Computed example of a mutant assay.
Amino acid sequence: MSRICQITGKKQMIGNNRSHAMNATKRRFLPNIQYHRFWIPEKQRFIKLRVSMNGMRCIDKHGIEFILNKMKLKNKG
């Protein structure tokens, strides 16, 4: 399964490890993705999302209903 945040769309980045001699070898930078259950009061149920810590901060700031509505609008068109 891919490591993509369902809220922010964050995914892995590719970069280089640099040794002391400045040799470059490829590496991956993975986002901090967690599974988390969120309570939806209007539907009286939980939903399970795969979110980054940045996505969780957005949910804490704006509320889960606002974020879900924003996701629906983005998927619509």
Rank of each mutant, 00 (worst) to 15 (best):
M1Y: 15
M1D: 11
S2I: 15
R3I: 03
R3L: 05
R3V: 10
I4D: 01
C5H: 01
C5M: 00
C5P: 00
Q6K: 08
I7H: 00
T8H: 07
T8E: 02
T8Y: 10
K10L: 15
K10R: 11
K11W: 05
K11C: 06
Q12R: 14
M13W: 11
M13H: 13
I14P: 11
I14T: 15
I14V: 15
G15K: 10
G15W: 07
N16E: 06
N16Y: 07
N16W: 04
N17C: 07
N17F: 03
R18C: 08
S19A: 05
A21H: 14
A21E: 15
N23V: 03
A24T: 11
A24D: 06
A24Y: 05
A24F: 08
A24I: 06
T25H: 11
T25W: 10
T25G: 06
R27G: 09
F29T: 04
L30C: 03
L30N: 14
L30V: 08
P31R: 03
P31G: 02
N32R: 13
N32P: 07
N32W: 06
N32E: 09
I33L: 01
I33V: 01
Q34D: 14
H36T: 12
H36A: 11
H36K: 15
R37S: 14
F38C: 00
F38D: 01
W39G: 09
I40N: 02
I40S: 00
I40P: 02
I40Y: 02
P41M: 04
P41N: 07
E42G: 02
E42F: 00
K43Y: 09
K43H: 10
K43A: 07
Q44V: 05
Q44E: 08
R45C: 03
R45H: 01
F46H: 00
F46V: 06
F46A: 04
I47E: 00
I47D: 02
I47Q: 01
I47K: 04
K48A: 02
K48E: 04
K48T: 11
K48G: 05
L49H: 01
L49K: 00
L49W: 03
R50H: 13
V51T: 00
V51G: 01
S52Y: 02
N54I: 06
N54F: 08
N54Q: 13
N54Y: 09
N54C: 08
G55I: 04
G55F: 01
M56Q: 13
M56W: 10
R57S: 14
C58R: 11
C58S: 13
I59D: 11
I59W: 05
D60T: 08
D60C: 08
K61E: 05
K61Y: 08
K61Q: 05
H62C: 05
G63F: 00
I64W: 03
I64A: 04
E65T: 11
F66K: 13
F66D: 11
I67G: 02
L68H: 12
M71C: 14
M71N: 14
K72G: 05
L73C: 07
L73D: 09
L73T: 09
L73V: 06
L73H: 09
K74P: 06
K74A: 11
K74W: 08
K74T: 06
N75A: 14
N75H: 14
N75T: 11
K76M: 02
K76F: 01
G77P: 00
G77Q: 12
G77C: 12
G77F: 12
